[in-house]
Design a protein around this nucleic acid. Sequence first.
DNA 1: CGGCTACTTGAGCCCGCTCAACATCAGTGG
DNA 2: CCACTGATGTTGAGCGGGCTCAAGTAGCCG
Lengths: 239, 239
Amino acid sequence: MIEKLLLKLRLRDELSDSEEAVLRGAMSHTVDHTQGRTFIRSGMELTTSNLLIDGLVCRYKDLADGSRQMLELHVPGDFIDLHSFPLKRLDHNVMALVPSTIGVFPHERLQAITQDEPHLSRLLWLSTLLDASIHREWLLSLGRRSAIQRLAHLFCELYIRLGIVKLTQQTSYRLPLTQSQISELKGLTPVHVNRTLKELREQGIVTFRSDTVSIHDWTRLQAVAEFDPAYLFMEKRPR
Amino acid sequence: MIEKLLLKLRLRDELSDSEEAVLRGAMSHTVDHTQGRTFIRSGMELTTSNLLIDGLVCRYKDLADGSRQMLELHVPGDFIDLHSFPLKRLDHNVMALVPSTIGVFPHERLQAITQDEPHLSRLLWLSTLLDASIHREWLLSLGRRSAIQRLAHLFCELYIRLGIVKLTQQTSYRLPLTQSQISELKGLTPVHVNRTLKELREQGIVTFRSDTVSIHDWTRLQAVAEFDPAYLFMEKRPR
DNA sequence: CGGCTACTTGAGCCCGCTCAACATCAGTGG
DNA sequence: CCACTGATGTTGAGCGGGCTCAAGTAGCCG
């Protein structure tokens, strides 16, 4: 169940067998959520944190005029709301973009980990800081990158993150999102996303169609996006 | 020295005298940085984390064309780069916007805290998650808010955050930034920031002049920004 | 007083938005 | 089997918020 989480953590540091066992024991059960369901709402009192096991999930905030900004896209192996363990509630909503399976980690068990497993605790801390680092890279995108750069960057990031958890083929991966959802991810309108995808396709860089991203020219894709994976901290070292 | 950090932490949870003492003991010394100095660069190997004691500091990333996006503004009492403790390096640069005094926390001492002080560790974890929450609110600003809303929101946020560490007067506070720096904070151009500030001033909402923000109509300022301080988690409770 | 930096304002442009029509496709029911 | 429906994608036309370029002003310091 937590295999993809282990892949993600072991990319960044060693994890002993006993730590792995503690982590497995910290998950109480799984829950399935239907497509489109917002299962965590901003402000709710939370006593568990959730690991995405299978599916696709996003965090988002809405504005009064109905416009929505997605804040992060979560792939299997990501903790969705580990932030709620120290924070006790969230500042945003969480929604399943496709039917998704979630692993539930009660806060008491996480609390026990912080008492007894300092190294494992630091790795959990690390995993929330990867979210923060992704937030910062997205701030750069929304603040300074053009539409074509934003989409190129999104496709680069997901290629790397999905690759870590073995969810890519050679040069493609499944991404079951609508163009409208992509517009909510990157601060654009659906119409402009459509035109920008066409541009990327006609330039022979990347195609997004029938829920699949096919990268035709990774070098140019990276160049357009100014993508540097350093912000994903993919180095194994003592933490 | 760490008084403002204590104000910030005690706003969110109890902190025992012994924990306070541990925290004081974790700081090895202070360093002064001159105005405009970038003292942490992306990718550098880091073995200490820094607390802002006095001054004003920002994190930022640059793009190849020379444009810059600031990611967060730090006020006294904020850890600037506690993220570097689990991450070991940063994904961005850190610069002093005015002459600033920084308290240095060696990572070995923070490591010791994670071994011996689980509750204090969770509070340090919390403080990095407040950064992440601020990042998310800024994502909403950059993705969906108009120029006037972005600036209004910035002035709201800083009024609250500076208030926590007692750096506000009744309805005003010092903010020694140029209009150009404000444009780098909120993904705008200096010219448009100038026009937008004029608009806010002429509407009698807020004035930003000679390094001071004067709020004339807090209710309208909040309304324009759609500001809701929930994302700052200002509730005292066990963490 | 001269030189620098920051602020201010005008004029014109463009990227991305809005509005609208139409195409495509997967259900769904008759 | 086709008609209907609703969601999603595509394309055109025109608009506008924020950008660029440029000139000028204000304030500070040597």
